[in-house]
């Protein structure tokens, strides 16, 4: 998928959670949202993009994507 679109969407989520004063809770919030609502294909693509530097991702989005769980390709 268009990675710019995925980055924008991830940043939109991070922007919502940025107001959370507890930083760990904010990171969890973004990560949990991605896990519960995003198709694994999209998560995987975003994670790969992050691994390559993740340019354009907001810091909070970066942190969330870092620990994002993505099921192995075979099981999905």
């Amino acid at each position: 998928m268009n990675i710019e679109r995925l980055v924008t969407m991830a940043n939109d989520i991070a922007t919502y959670f940025a107001v959370e004063p507890n930083h760990a809770a904010a990171v969890d919030g973004v990560r949990d949202h991605l896990t519960r609502f995003w198709d694994p294909v999209m998560r995987r693509q975003l994670k790969d993009y992050f691994a390559q530097g993740g340019e354009g991702l907001l810091p909070l989005a970066n942190e969330a994507v870092d620990g994002l769980s993505v099921p192995p390709v075979a099981t999905v």
Partner: peptide, 9 residues
């Protein structure tokens, strides 16, 4: 057990 694609996706 994993979400699928939404319409815009």
């Amino acid at each position: 057990g994993e979400p699928g694609l939404r319409i815009p996706n």
